[in-house]
Design a protein around this nucleic acid. Structure first.
Lengths: 333, 333
DNA sequence: CTGTTAGCGCATTCAA
DNA sequence: TTGAATGCGCTAACAG
């Protein structure tokens, strides 16, 4: 019963014959109904039912130069921070009739470049990238391909094309300023080793004004690595007063490790995460964090690409979506 | 500087002219080098560099009937349980030269059907579905499309085509048996409302042998909903001894709510999750759970599709990948 | 409103 | 080992 039935799929040609109209009329009835009489549309629709026709977008895209495909490049799907963005992107695009094609670039720029080529070979109508395009070669190839590009989750005055993001340096600086405002000086950083996390660390260190104890953990960051990171930091600085983490997963691990060591949070040790994960408001104590509107990034990126594809001007091709510190129990001294 | 440079992308035709060979020789040099002399290959490769040629897979796929595209349908990307599967699927497929195209079906079967059509219109070389195809119409359309299909994360003796999964009923039954073996009789269930979670609940209830207090939470499940679910269960059954949760996120919420209420885990209340999330081994106490090898599901599904596309027979088209209960602190009485 | 013509860019025939 | 012709399924551009 599992044998694949090798019925040749119906083509638009079959539909047209069944409906007694020409090929192009059938085409229009389906994709441009305004140009066709209601009666004809009805007949074509019936013919579609009868034949079981499903359009072939490869063929349509080849001719029309619109693949209705958008490529999303993420470092790794396991980085849950980007998931809400990808999800919102997917939904917004689906509403406009586009599909999302997914590529994992890893954290290595050679692979990113290869992935760019792979994606361009699908002739997508848009490309959404997490972070900035690293390699100059990649930048040039994208520009020459003439495909709308949206860089996200970072900021640059000179994007390849369009951008929705925020300044990583400012995020780090803001958390540092918040810590200093609380009078915490013995501070540390628990961070992933990827480029964007390290940029936030740089922003943090710059505002603190001197080097700080840092524990760098490999991607993907996790609760477990957060526990280890705190152990490492406490060795470097036993009197540690506050920790800035590059994700809420890490922050959660730091919280649990602190509690396991009998440290009170936030009285003995304050903790701030990044990303405002769904669990962060509901731990005990709840985790202070930096909130970024991930879904909005996805929605805006989708809008930009769809507008561009429709030939409309994109109102704001570079958007700083900002961020905000969410103060919760883990720093509410 | 952001203007899109409207250079017409180089085609294989341009490459062939640049290399001084015919179109088809250029084509073979790139996709079937065995048939072409080394010297020619070299010249074609140089021509590719010079022209900046990037293949057009829409055109190639149209002619060759191989799109090198695989569609993955998930209920929602936010359901983190499936993420490792999608990630492994993506990686395995990428190694074989395939790209993944993502579709969210939601939890509604009308949308699933629409999404199936959308995906089929891309003429993917394979379709991987989370769960079983619900609608008979969808089943039929898939069979007629002649596209290899892998259903996952569930079990059936009569899959549409191929399957990698496990029995949801058995999972529920196994957890119930484990609870009974511990002598816990005042048990409850905290579960998501989706089909697969409810199947596990059914398996649990069947083995317990009588109805049990149940809190059903909307998708996606989260720590927060876990906290609420325990509150609800304790109202229904103040003497609750153990809770079976449909995800580790829920279990984590139940754990935190229990601790916030001064209940000792596992002495007063035992908790079991599902999915073996990355954090579950590292909470205090750690969370007992049901482990399913999600990445392996993705790898096997990829293998099945790739084998099928190569015309090789798929050794085992229906795989029960099983599961195992991981006993940790939250039930280690 | 409907139809005819002419390709999109490439790979699968064939033949040399 | 190379090439010429042909068409995959569809739609843009122009006619009627």
């Amino acid at each position: 019963m599992n044998a694949l039935i090798p019925i040749k799929p119906a083509t638009l040609h079959d539909v047209a014959r069944e409906a007694g109209v020409s090929l192009i009329t059938a085409s229009r009835a389906l994709s441009n109904p305004g140009l066709v009489s209601d009666k004809t549309i009805e007949r074509v629709k019936q013919a579609v039912e009868v034949t079981g026709y499903i359009p072939n977008l490869l063929a349509g895209g080849l001719k029309s130069k619109r693949s209705l495909l958008v490529a999303a490049l993420v470092p790794a799907l396991s980085v849950s921070q980007f998931l809400p963005t990808v999800q919102a992107l997917n939904e917004s695009l689906a509403e406009a009739g586009y599909q999302l094609i997914l590529g994992q670039t890893g954290y290595d720029s050679a692979r990113e470049e290869a992935m760019l080529n792979t994606m361009i070979s699908r002739r997508p109508d848009g490309i959404v990238i997490t972070g900035l395009v690293q390699s100059p070669a990649g930048r040039e190839r994208l520009q020459r391909a003439g495909i709308p590009v949206v860089e996200t989750w970072d900021f640059s005055d000179r994007p390849v094309d369009m951008l929705v993001g925020f300044s990583l340096l400012k995020v780090g600086g803001a958390v540092a300023g918040y810590f200093l405002g609380k009078g915490w000086h013995k501070v540390g950083v628990a961070t992933g080793g990827d480029h964007r996390a390290l940029m936030r660390r740089d922003g943090f260190v710059a505002t603190i004004g001197r080097d700080v104890p840092t524990a760098i953990v490999p991607a993907p960051s996790s609760l477990e690595l957060g526990r280890r990171a705190l152990s490492e930091l406490l060795q470097k600085e036993p009197a540690l007063r506050a920790v800035c983490c590059s994700s809420d997963q890490l922050a959660h691990g730091v919280l649990i490790e602190a509690q396991a060591r009998g440290l009170r949070v936030p009285e003995d040790l304050a903790i701030c995460g990044f990303g405002n994960a769904d669990f962060s408001a509901h731990t005990v104590p709840s985790i202070s964090t930096v909130h970024v509107d991930g879904p909005e990034i996805g929605r805006l990126a989708a809008r930009m690409i769809v507008d561009r594809c429709r030939g409309e001007a994109v109102a704001k091709p570079v958007v700083d979506i900002g961020f905000r510190i969410v103060e919760r129990g883990s720093t509410a001294a």
